[in-house]
């Protein structure tokens, strides 16, 4: 399963090599052109059957959140800072893979026996935590994990009942959807796929990818927040697991093009594909950068709902995943120049 391979790969923002290698291997045989751009994005073109001159961009980001080593102390502990949005509540007691050799590391916690009263109620700041790779002293720590070394959650992909669990579903789920689309039949137009870098630190790869591709319209493919934990008041879930692909109308990074949203909804309804509208106003995706490229690009975002994203134990429904692929494939089959008239 391509999602398993992608989820397990090491690819914190700025260090996407392993994911890139998997992507190249997975899509090379199914596209007509492929290259790596100056920022490290994988840009691939799957030629269409030629009836429509549209240039359609599909983007999914390869990078994931993680940690970077920023210091070493005398006892051999690694001081770290977050790369992208890490929730400090998740760090203590978590296993990490450190550096290209994937050294096992842990962020330790003070044993419960030693806690002062009230200490357990506080969240430790990342500045007060350290990754322990078992180094004996500063020299050894520096040798094993020099400054700038990346670390990622060490969780492995697991299949549960109809769901799967793993790290980095944001956005390896989107990458996997994009791989599936490239592996399928061509569309009437040329499909420009961008597997982007550095989304988690500011939509950086997508910005240059969109400039280079200069598309007529674009779709960002994502893994997004599913959030059904019981709440005090009846006021939200962002999306729900098992209810189908999530279509964004507006988030912090962009307002989706209404013609593309209409295309997605009409397609879902005609084809009986479940879908949901993601709660507006939250999060941001590569579409935020893409839609502002050059003279502007009508854009939309479609996402696989995932519980516990930005944590080591994300969880998604394979039905949602399959329906996201289906919704995109069916919608792209209907997309023509007239859609944007």
């Amino acid at each position: 399963m391509i999602l398993r391979e992608l989820s397990d790969a090491f690819g914190v923002s700025g260090n996407e090599d392993d994911v890139r290698a998997i992507v190249l291997n997975a899509v090379r045989a199914h596209v007509d052109e492929i290259k790596i751009d100056a920022m490290g994005n994988v840009l691939a073109v799957k030629h269409g059957t030629g009836q429509d001159p549209l240039r359609v961009m599909l983007a999914a980001h390869m990078d994931e959140i993680g940690l970077m080593v920023v210091g070493h102390d005398d006892n051999g502990f690694l001081k770290v800072r977050s790369v992208g949005g890490i929730d400090p509540r998740l760090l203590p007691g978590t296993l990490f893979s450190v550096g290209p050799e994937r050294l096992p590391g842990v962020i330790g916690v003070k044993p419960v026996h030693l806690l002062q009263s009230g200490e357990a109620k506080k969240v430790s700041k990342i500045e007060d935590l350290a990754v322990d790779i078992g180094a004996q002293n500063k020299d050894e720590a520096e040798k094993l994990a020099p400054l700038g070394t990346y670390a990622t959650f060490a969780t492995r992909f697991r299949e549960l009942e109809s769901t799967v669990s793993g790290k980095a579903f944001d956005d390896r789920a989107g990458c996997a959807v994009l791989v599936e689309l490239l592996r399928g039949e061509p569309f009437t137009f040329d499909l420009h796929a961008a597997f982007t870098v550095q989304e988690e630190v500011g939509l950086r790869g997508a910005r240059v990818a969109a400039f280079a591709i200069d598309p007529d319209c674009a779709f960002a493919l994502e893994g997004t927040i599913a959030d059904e934990i019981p709440k005090e008041k009846d006021a939200s879930p962002t999306t729900r697991l098992g209810k189908g692909p999530a279509i964004t109308v507006m988030d912090r990074s962009f307002i989706a093009d209404r013609r593309l949203v209409r295309l997605l909804i009409d397609t879902a309804e005609d084809q009986d594909i479940p879908y949901q509208i993601k709660q507006p106003g939250l999060g941001g995706t590569d579409a935020g950068a893409i839609h502002l490229a050059r003279e502007g690009v009508p854009s939309a975002t479609v996402a696989v709902p995932s519980r516990y994203i930005h944590s080591p134990v994300a969880l998604l429904s394979m039905d949602d995943f399959d329906n996201t692929v289906r919704l995109m494939r069916e919608s792209l089959s209907r997309l023509t120049c007239d859609t944007l008239e």
Binding site: F254, I255, H291, L292, R294, E295, G296
Partner: peptide
Amino acid sequence: VGLRGARTSAYG
């Protein structure tokens, strides 16, 4: 929501 339309129009 962030001066978005002016940016792309001016580019064109």
